[in-house]
Amino acid sequence: MTTSAISTAALTRSFGAHQALADLTLDVPQGEVFGLLGHNGAGKTTTVNLLTTLLEPTAGDAMINGHSVKTDAAGVRQSIGYLPENVQFYDNLTLLENLRFFARLSGLRRPDARIRDVLTFLDFTGHDNQRVGTFSKGMRQRVGIAQAVLHAPAVLFLDEPTSGLDPEGVRTLRKTIVRLNHEFGMTIFMNTHLLSEVTKTCTSIGILNHGRLVHHDSMSNTLAAFPADESLEDIYFQLDSAAA
């Protein structure tokens, strides 16, 4: 029996009168690469912010690796890594100084050996003493992944990880996500717009429409439920428009 890495029960978040996420009930088993799809404003980032404890739910609850976002936020934070969309760092500090800071905040007392291992894993060596302010978008994204996995979290949240990357950067990131999942068994929860990336990376998907989950199934079941000549893009628009 597989246990859930992420489990939400009627998770809801409102901003004033606007309900950004309504009654989200979802289970993501351990070891999955889950892709959350939806148009702009569908509630994807709100979902990630709730699951990473950056926002508090208006109603409902979520369990991450057995910790409640409402009653054990510290336990949740210990279990997760997070890469926000357009990740930013302390530009005046070097790569090593940035990573040491985040590693220590995550509880690693002597992080240098672990930082070296992670940077080697990401094939991102030779930049240790370079200031992050001089890095390209693709380099920053790799630093973002590095800071998110330094403490070997059980669950990794990625918010639009391919946003602004060139094709080479997208391919590198995709390989990294797959390796993190295969080699370390990390559960990955990813928001994205790029349907082609979802097909190549995710093992299950969910589709949000105006804050409501309108589809949740494994990638294979989703593709099997529709005619063989339909792409995920066709399927996404069918499900999205049916919900609307």
Binding site: T52, T53, L54, A74, R77, Q78, I80, Y82, P84, N86, V87, Q88, F89, Y90, D91, F102, L105, S106, G107, Q147
Partner: peptide, 17 residues
């Protein structure tokens, strides 16, 4: 600094009081 650069989300997603 954290609010300007957007690093606050990275910091607050860590187990930080």
């Amino acid at each position: 600094r954290d609010r300007q650069s957007g690093t606050s989300d990275l910091v607050l997603s860590r187990p930080v009081d």
